[in-house]
Simulated assay, not measured.
Amino acid sequence: MGKKGIMVVTSILAVMTIVFGVISAILLALKHHQDDRGEFSTYRRSPAMTCGVVAAVLASMTQILASVAICCCGAWRRTKGAKRIAAVVFFIISWVLAVIAVLLFLAGGMLGFEGSAKKTVGNARIVGGVGIFVIATFLFLVVAALEVASYRLVRKKDHY
């Protein structure tokens, strides 16, 4: 598989990660109960747990494949000056943010386990953690943008 094939697969994985992140947030938001018996309500395992774990795995695979595409074949050596520095900075920041996004996807998935939900508005009981999936998905969008920027800086040829 060539460099373009790796980038196509990476793009597909990135889109799938975003889709699973959004689906996880929606599934967790739909996990609520209506009852009047006390302060807390129990809920069963949510499909958001599985979607969150899948999103974390896809995000990891996307980051690894993008790193292979950016770093392979001595691309860093071919790029000189400010472009090289910017590409390295974008690459490092994307790794840091990718690790945070993966951890957030896993944390959101853990909130999909069986447990209890606290009363929030009226008698509605809502499982927390929707915001975690939203933040993780947004963070992953930033990671993807940084990966693309780094790839473009490393692969771009000067036209003098």
Rank of each mutant, 00 (worst) to 15 (best):
V9E: 10
V22F: 13
V57C: 06
F133S: 10
C51K: 03
A124H: 07
N123M: 09
I100D: 03
M16T: 03
F105L: 12
V68S: 09
G109F: 09
L28Q: 15
A86D: 00
V8C: 07
H32N: 14
G81Q: 03
K119N: 01
W95F: 01
C51V: 02
A66Q: 05
L28V: 14
I126T: 07
H33C: 03
T42S: 01
A29S: 14
R78A: 10
G74Y: 08
V53C: 09
S11K: 04
I64C: 05
L28R: 12
V154T: 05
C73G: 08
K3N: 14
S116G: 08
A69Y: 02
A124S: 10
V8E: 09
F133I: 09
V53H: 09
T79R: 11
V102M: 11
K80D: 05
I100W: 04
N123I: 08
F20Q: 06
T137E: 12
L30N: 15
V143H: 09
F90S: 00
A101H: 03
A87V: 01
M61W: 10
V9G: 07
A136M: 12
Q34N: 13
S46D: 06
A14I: 08
V88Y: 01
I126N: 04
F20H: 03
S60M: 11
I92C: 00
F138R: 05
Q63P: 00
L30H: 09
L146W: 00
M49K: 12
V15E: 10
S116N: 03
I64L: 14
A117P: 11
A56Q: 09
V89G: 02
P47Y: 07
L97Q: 03
T17H: 07
T42C: 00
V19P: 10
G115E: 07
E39A: 00
V121T: 11
G129Y: 09
I135F: 13
E39C: 00
A145M: 14
V96S: 02
A145G: 11
E147T: 05
A29K: 12
H32E: 14
A124K: 09
G5F: 05
K83S: 05
S116A: 11
D35M: 00
L65I: 06
A48K: 08
R152K: 13
I18S: 06
Y43D: 03
M61P: 03
V68E: 08
K31R: 15
T137L: 13
G112M: 10
T42Q: 01
R125T: 02
C51H: 07
S24I: 15
D35G: 00
I126V: 13
S11W: 07
A98R: 01
M1G: 12
T10V: 02
V99P: 01
R84P: 02
A86E: 01
S46V: 02
S11E: 12
A86Q: 03
K80M: 04
T120I: 14
G2M: 04
F138W: 09
K119W: 00
A101M: 05
A59M: 07
Y151W: 13
I23L: 15
C73K: 13
D35K: 00
K3G: 10
A124F: 13
D158Q: 15
Q34K: 06
L97V: 07
G38H: 04
T79L: 10
M16D: 06
M16P: 04
A136E: 08
G109W: 05
V96L: 14
G38V: 01
V15A: 15
